[in-house]
Design a protein around this nucleic acid. Sequence first.
DNA 1: GATGAATGAGCCTTCATTCAT
DNA 2: CATGAATGAAGGCTCATTCAT
Lengths: 221, 221, 221, 221
Amino acid sequence: MLQALERGRAQSPKAKQSRSRDRHAEILSAAVRVFARDGIARARIADIAAEAGVPLSSVYDYYDSKEDIAYAVPIAQTSEFVAEFHAKALKLEGADERLYLFMWLTVDFARRHQDWARTLYLEVWPSVMVNKTRVKDSLDDFGRIMYTLIQDGEQAGLWPADPNRYQTVTIFIGSLSQMIITWLLYKRPRQLMKATAPLVQRLMGLLQTSAPVIEQRRPKN
Amino acid sequence: MLQALERGRAQSPKAKQSRSRDRHAEILSAAVRVFARDGIARARIADIAAEAGVPLSSVYDYYDSKEDIAYAVPIAQTSEFVAEFHAKALKLEGADERLYLFMWLTVDFARRHQDWARTLYLEVWPSVMVNKTRVKDSLDDFGRIMYTLIQDGEQAGLWPADPNRYQTVTIFIGSLSQMIITWLLYKRPRQLMKATAPLVQRLMGLLQTSAPVIEQRRPKN
Amino acid sequence: MLQALERGRAQSPKAKQSRSRDRHAEILSAAVRVFARDGIARARIADIAAEAGVPLSSVYDYYDSKEDIAYAVPIAQTSEFVAEFHAKALKLEGADERLYLFMWLTVDFARRHQDWARTLYLEVWPSVMVNKTRVKDSLDDFGRIMYTLIQDGEQAGLWPADPNRYQTVTIFIGSLSQMIITWLLYKRPRQLMKATAPLVQRLMGLLQTSAPVIEQRRPKN
Amino acid sequence: MLQALERGRAQSPKAKQSRSRDRHAEILSAAVRVFARDGIARARIADIAAEAGVPLSSVYDYYDSKEDIAYAVPIAQTSEFVAEFHAKALKLEGADERLYLFMWLTVDFARRHQDWARTLYLEVWPSVMVNKTRVKDSLDDFGRIMYTLIQDGEQAGLWPADPNRYQTVTIFIGSLSQMIITWLLYKRPRQLMKATAPLVQRLMGLLQTSAPVIEQRRPKN
DNA sequence: GATGAATGAGCCTTCATTCAT
DNA sequence: CATGAATGAAGGCTCATTCAT
């Protein structure tokens, strides 16, 4: 279940020297800050270089193009998220606790890495860019983990079999994203995590009373 | 309840002549198509002009800048959405039917106006751009309508008082957006509206069993 | 016989306005000068623009790229050469006089358009660039005219049938090019045209005693 | 007569170690290939290094600059040509046979060293670059040998005194170059050497009936 | 001597925007 | 009002060359 996201952690083969690794990371980190501030489209490589404290042309020693850097952002930090989740999940027992953690951590990680979150949630995620396979893969894993955790819980009898797991995942991810986006843009709710806990609980409550099959309704007009 | 979104309908004062109105609309419609195809950042005014079949410099007779056009996109079509909702809502009785319609129509409208939806959901909405007040207002109205409808239902006794209406709105909007985005990017689910009906019903089911106040949980680590 | 080279004269369709035509030509003429001075590879578009007295970006209103300009050089001026030859050839009688004129004019034209000649003989002609079809066509016509003139002379009985016309053309073109190149690079001979006349006569003498079929010799080693 | 070209054989003083000599030669040979493929202007030192299988910066241990490498190409291989001619010429008797060999070998050598020929005939020879003295010297020797051989033949009574030896050299070199260039660019004639033998014979025929002094003609216009 | 890494200077190209007609 | 043409300001990217190890 957890291996899925591990891929992203594989580092560029170039980066063997410690100096190189530093620069590689420095540039990426600078890029995240600049992207968050100016948006990917408006960000200039020169600014990223300046922010990273390296010469402009050195950026090209590590990344092929501006696009390349943009792609690296979600991939790189997503793997950090996974690592963190992985570490914490080990100490937990059931799929319910893990699922709870996963959702809670999703928001908390965004809160703690605001620059990265701005870039991911406001720029990369919804963008056409995700069609670049590597980025897409990295993001798809997110939903996949959730899907698997729900499945695990069913098998453990923690909640009834969900007749529409994808719908549930849609609600979960959508709700969390919406909360994060709202917070990023408007700083509402003020206390992000205080609002997150009940949200996650309510979402998990959905697992107990999954998609009832009511009569199919459709607007009359 | 419905007036909120009406604002957007006010037309630019210039557009009094019919020829002018035509061009105005043609350019905007062309812009939507180009934005959807290339993304706002990569779209060139020259392309929009070409798509609209007007000379490049004529674009500036109707819009002050590229940004201006981008802002006009959500505002303009959102008002069309509202008009449609308005017309259909009149024939309905309760807040429950209206809320259902609102959510269902949100997805259906995106389906029917794919280019506009791409621009709105994948570019404008999550973008920093929404901080421009006029755009923000237009989008905020969206949540406001939902909020009001929930409130209306409570007063009509259709569902219990929701102790956390904002949370509910977050879940509603997030889920619908997530469904629309997924469909725009991956064309999944194949039958968008077939999947939308049960999603909306499940979401509305949340209103019956609103946010239980359980003991506050927090990850142990 | 003469139509062959006429093609090149067709002007870019854009260039309908007189202002435009002027600029188009000004830029090309400036390019010729800059290319001759710095070589195509080292020439900067900025220099061409400056030399032409137009803003840098205006160059791109008329040519798509630096390559584009380079290609235009041989094509454009070659057509001028043809026009000149055409005009003068009309007043002449036999293929012998026309062939003589053609060869003599080849050198004289290069002498009178030194910048262009430098670009053509030292950069474009021998370069890989000629494989771009339009350029190649333009240059091939050159040999074709010569070939046809030799043929005409045969039919008129001015000289015996040449068993190896291509060989003759090779010698003619090669000798003239060599003379021009030497002059361009070293300014030798000092009096270019004074040396050209006897060279051309000697070359034409070859037509009288064309390729004798002697026993095939091959180095012994 | 033969010493003229010998100069070029002097090797770079650095190249005393065998390892060094190897690398020196490897780099040059790689450069020839890259130049032939991409043209001198577009060739990148990095490509040359890669082609030679040495680290980029090692190139600078042997050559001071890109220009330096470009200059070395004609100089180096020209000396090989001379050596070959030298060896074969020793076995021959008269200036006629040697001149014939020289011309034939010129084409044959180009055929056998196509990459080098592309660089020399299509890039270096006609280029402004030849003004660099060392390169120029190397190329001038080519004409000088021819000139001397013609002279030798006169003194031996093989052909009448040529009143315009330079003109003859111009025709010889021009014709051979033209044939080589045409072959390099268009692979015509298919059988290069089969066409070369008669060409050389025809050219040598010119020595028997050298430049007749006819009345000076000039186009009437 | 060999090499991985770094970098500064430069150049092509793009476009939003303006303006004269 | 309409528009063809012009242009200033920028930004991405390349590469020859250097240098510390």
